[in-house]
Design a binder for these strands. Sequence first.
DNA 1: CTCTTTGCAAAGAGTTTGCAGGGTG
DNA 2: CACCCTGCAAACTCTTTGCAAAGAG
Lengths: 133, 133
Amino acid sequence: MEVKRKNSKKRTAILNALSSVKDHPTAEMLYAALKPEIPELSLGTVYRNLSILADEGLVVNVAHVAGQERYDARTDPHAHFVCKHCGQVIDVELPDMMTPLYAQVSEETGCVAESYKLSFNGLCENCNRKLTN
Amino acid sequence: MEVKRKNSKKRTAILNALSSVKDHPTAEMLYAALKPEIPELSLGTVYRNLSILADEGLVVNVAHVAGQERYDARTDPHAHFVCKHCGQVIDVELPDMMTPLYAQVSEETGCVAESYKLSFNGLCENCNRKLTN
DNA sequence: CTCTTTGCAAAGAGTTTGCAGGGTG
DNA sequence: CACCCTGCAAACTCTTTGCAAAGAG
């Protein structure tokens, strides 16, 4: 059964912080960003609320980089690029080619697709320059 | 500088075990599968060798499910389906539509793509039947 | 009041690492 | 005989959880 959510300033602040940023932060990055503004904030609360927000579909895990989960408040289907050197995660604007394939996936596998994750891997512009000089 | 690899029966066994299976096992699953056959095997060795094999490109991380990394010895680009209920990971045979887009990704972002990960998410056939009855 | 949310600290889970001994070329 | 590989256990990192107090409706 469903839990009735109450108003939570912390949760709202976490969602706002995530929405206002495009670098797909980790829980710790969000914590560090909010801490100055909300000194009583604790890291456990960030984890807890990210999990709640993800359940509610307001937030999405876009990648797992160097052992840490990366979050995104942009929930429309879009791709990402993950730099294998610096770990940076950036948006890639490609037309959504995968959602139209859900029916085909279902036909092939019997599985019911509801979402997908697409991430490219390699070197970002900076790291490529630095490492290829 | 490069390390000169020596022959290692354990590493070979791990790669063989992974190659002979299509369920994208975790390190622990591989360990459990090999243990009867190689009783002196230790879990640390499985982790160490999976990491070496990944460096060499013989093995790939295809997904991170329920906090565990899933490995695959099939290294050609292909998609996966991850069941959000049972955590099963299965291959999806779709034409590779992403590799041809590397140039476009580079143009858009400046990043040099070398690989990609595509995974669909939802309920597998069994879980869907069980949960939708 | 009742039930959710939070801080804090401890617990958990998965993975990595140091070390001493064994194996390979 | 130099250097890689391994078992074992401890260490590490990220994330989750229990509890008592604070906050929302």
